[in-house]
Amino acid sequence: MAVRVALLALLLAAAAPAPPPVDPALGRTPLADPAAEAQAMRLMHELRCLTCQNQSIADSNAEQAEAMRALVRSRIAAGESPEAVRADLIARYGDWVSFRPPARPDTLALWAVPALALLVGGLVVRRLFR
């Protein structure tokens, strides 16, 4: 068991490339490339500030949010896709950090609500018109 964990750790360490350096100024300044900045903005609006009450990192003045903005912009400037950045942050903080809930077996009920509500409602309505 211990050996396997050690191997796994080695594998993970080897597989994870060193992240590109983060420019702290990017927490306060937009990217020069408007397309990249738009991508970053879209993602920052969907990431949740950790030290605030239900605020996105794009909306928050907290220092923590600023650090996360710097990370998002640096990664996107380095050519990473927004989804890769989101996945990386989820790997660190869990799904909580993304305002978009994951699609998993335990969130099936959440994503099925619209269809389910229409289906059940539709059946009731059908009885009404029969």
Partner: peptide
């Protein structure tokens, strides 16, 4: 950690916070 990037890397959300790291670095 001047700009808080190490804290993000650890998944830490504030101070104080303490992580236990074993001999294999996990």
């Amino acid at each position: 950690d001047r700009d808080g990037q190490a804290a993000i890397a650890f998944g830490s959300s504030g101070v104080p916070e303490t992580f236990l790291v074993d001999g294999r670095g996990v």
